[in-house]
């Protein structure tokens, strides 16, 4: 899916927990996330801390979208 969207010319940042799978499916910009049931959160944290964690991950993703890469890159 990542690959096909990128093939259409969009930079795609893949935020996923299982990095090897992301590499296998051909994502070029990869952000490792927290855990499979909650990639962009962590129920063990307080609501405020959890949102802060998510903000950090999204910021990292946006940065990745601005970064030129020549090969599969795990940010």
């Amino acid at each position: 899916m990542v690959k096909e969207i990128e093939r259409a010319g969009f930079p795609v940042v893949h935020m996923c927990t299982v990095v090897p799978i992301s590499l296998t499916v051909g994502a070029n910009r990869i952000i490792p996330t927290v855990a499979i049931p909650y990639p962009l959160g962590n129920p063990a944290l307080t609501a405020v801390d959890e949102k802060e964690l998510r903000r950090k991950l999204v910021k990292k993703a946006l940065k990745a979208l601005e970064t030129p890469v020549t090969e599969q890159t795990v940010f």
Binding site: V18, V19, P20, I21, P32, V74
Partner: peptide, 12 residues
């Protein structure tokens, strides 16, 4: 940081 090599090992 999360260790990518470890993740790959355990996923494999």
């Amino acid at each position: 940081e999360m260790d990518y090599a470890s993740l790959q090992l355990i996923e494999n």
